[in-house]
Design a protein around this nucleic acid. Structure first.
Lengths: 204, 204
DNA sequence: CTAGCAGCCTAACAATCGTTAGGCTACTGT
DNA sequence: ACAGTAGCCTAACGATTGTTAGGCTGCTAG
């Protein structure tokens, strides 16, 4: 049981390289031979680790899904103000990008594939539950008057998701999660009368 | 002599249907046969209108590129305050989504393809010029103190572009351009004293 | 020591890809 | 009236796709 070095590492390498290629070029545009080349092996050898291309994709997305699901569960149990819960969910999503950036990009990019793959029913079911959590959180924040009245709940969820997911395409060190949260929140939170922004004094 | 409606319209139908499929499934994941099916014709018949799949993609992206380039040229010639210029550029980008939503999604999604296609050198050159305009506009707005000091110019351009482009994936009637501008601007503009909601009116 | 199997290889499969060849039909200009 | 051709068709091409078959090598459990 100690000879794990050359064993599980190769499988991880396949996962990592294929995720990178899927994210950059698309699932269907990335051939098994291209993945094998990136891993320094032959295409047929990939099938020693994964039964099919679909299963390889499923392994990438399932791992990321487990991570974000855990984060959402913790938020679900926490007693948070509506606006704080919303910020926590944004930060959880961005944290997932930090750990599974390529998986997030694949999920975001190849949505039609994700919607049709028979191996991703669990991921899709979780996504539905996550969407409902988003909807409830946004509606609560709206009810609490923390969101600009120009937005409707359902459209705002989709807009927020698109905006968040798009940042997974940025290089990890380019823009911090704090910066992204700052952009998103100060656009959707209703301005509080009599209170300026906590961090910076306005200057002109 | 336009008594037959299905004549010259067929080429446009191919452009429209293929753009829709490319945007939803990806260029390489969309086969010529799938495009032909969507147009009610045979795959080989597509080659009567376009010499190759690459040329079909190029026709879609070039048409969109011409539109956005025209909008940018008008902004370039207009005497605008830095923040107003930035808002005008955001609105121009969103306006392009309204007219060429699928093309924008293709350009945004299949970036690796766009970067390599020999038929898209003009589109790529224009994109470089547009990026430089974005950089200059952002730097000017920063110099004028209109942007939160937490952002660096180069990273902010990329962030803004990702955020804008991602909204092309939304249904056209879901979120208005005004709403998107509101989200973006109030996250990046430094708060102005004594004003609740800044409402700029840039003219083109 | 040796049987077994993990891990990789080469070679090849059927299916599908973008594309081409060639033919039919109906309209057009003269 | 008739040649030309736009617009579509069927059939097929070679290349590439995901995948399978079968074999070699070296480590490991008993």
């Amino acid at each position: 049981m100690s000879q794990v070095t050359g064993r599980a590492n190769k499988r991880d390498a396949v996962l990592r390289e294929s995720a990178r290629l899927f994210a950059e070029r698309g699932i269907e545009a990335t051939t098994m031979r291209a993945i094998a080349d990136a891993c320094g092996m032959q295409a047929a050898s990939l099938y020693h680790h994964f039964a099919s291309k679909d299963e390889l994709v499923a392994a990438i997305l399932t791992r990321s899904d487990a991570h974000i699901s855990g984060l959402y569960d913790a938020i679900l149990d926490a007693p948070l103000e509506p606006a704080d819960r919303l910020e926590a969910m944004i930060r959880a999503t961005l944290d997932n990008f930090g750990h599974h950036r390529d998986a997030a990009r694949i999920y975001y990019r190849d949505r039609a594939y994700v919607a049709e793959s028979p191996l991703l029913t669990q991921v899709r079911d979780n996504a539905v539950a996550h969407d409902e959590l988003w909807d409830r959180s946004i509606e609560a924040a709206i009810a609490a008057g923390r969101i600009s009245p120009r937005f409707e709940a359902i459209n705002l969820r989709r807009l927020l998701q698109e905006l968040m997911w798009s940042t997974a395409r940025l290089r990890g060190d380019a823009v911090s999660a704090d910066d992204i949260v700052h952009v998103l929140l100060h656009g959707i939170l209703a301005p509080e009368p009599g209170r300026g922004e906590p961090s910076h004094r306005p200057e002109l």
